[in-house]
Design a binder for these strands. Structure first.
Lengths: 109, 109
DNA sequence: CCGCTTGCTACTGTTTGGGTAGCATATCGC
DNA sequence: GCGATATGCTACCCAAACAGTAGCAAGCGG
């Protein structure tokens, strides 16, 4: 399942530095996007699929498993998936990206 | 070459919202890591390869092309690659991740 | 010329992801 | 009970992405 934990060496880093593990985990397809799509609360498996334009359930389930094992997301109540407290902090650390992306759009238009 | 520009619809988003294009671009393997590895200045092609534990030149060149086309990195002087001004701002928007990753490591140990 | 570094491409396999179908469970109305 | 619907999820097979290795052309120092 290609576990990703901050203590384990990440793909491309034998040091085990947490930031490398994180960049590895978030650098997998749809991982960043999934965290982003959960910003407004819990979503069901199928809702996540639709928001990511029908990504295959295989990959969705794999990413969900990895992110759950990393403690970033968890099962929602009574259904679906949601960010954990840690996941919410990660999302907060990610929000500067939105501002940057908007400036980027203005500059390159 | 799978161009990524903020105006173009990203994989999985027909809206063309810049954040989606960015999450798509940075969600490709090694992309986040490459931006990170350039944080302390220009690096040669082969230096980047080593820092990412020998990722294949095929992929490295593809990521570099994509990131260059997106205006995030550029050719260094006289050799190598470096972050552009925009790229440096992106890196700045990414730095909160390091703090999060360190807390993450402490919590899950 | 020789040796070294530069960025980069070609080739061949393995890994990852995409696309579709379908299952088992639960919940609702009836 | 019954069907209808929604849930999370798995199996299967094929395409795309990536890894691993070799090697090339250009530039520079000697």
């Amino acid at each position: 399942m290609a576990r990703v934990r901050p203590g384990l060496p990440a793909r491309g880093s034998k040091s085990g530095r947490p930031i490398m593990a994180l960049l590895d985990l978030l650098g997998r397809r749809w991982a960043l996007r999934l965290v982003w799509e959960l910003r407004e609360g819990s979503q069901t498996f199928r809702a996540l699929q639709e928001r990511c334009s029908g990504l295959s359930p295989t990959v969705l389930n794999r990413r969900l498993s990895e992110l759950r094992e990393a403690g970033i997301i968890a099962r929602g109540e009574p259904t679906g998936y949601a960010l954990t407290a840690e996941g919410s902090e990660l999302l907060a650390a990610l929000t500067p990206l939105r501002g940057w992306a908007e400036r980027w759009a203005r500059r390159s238009s």
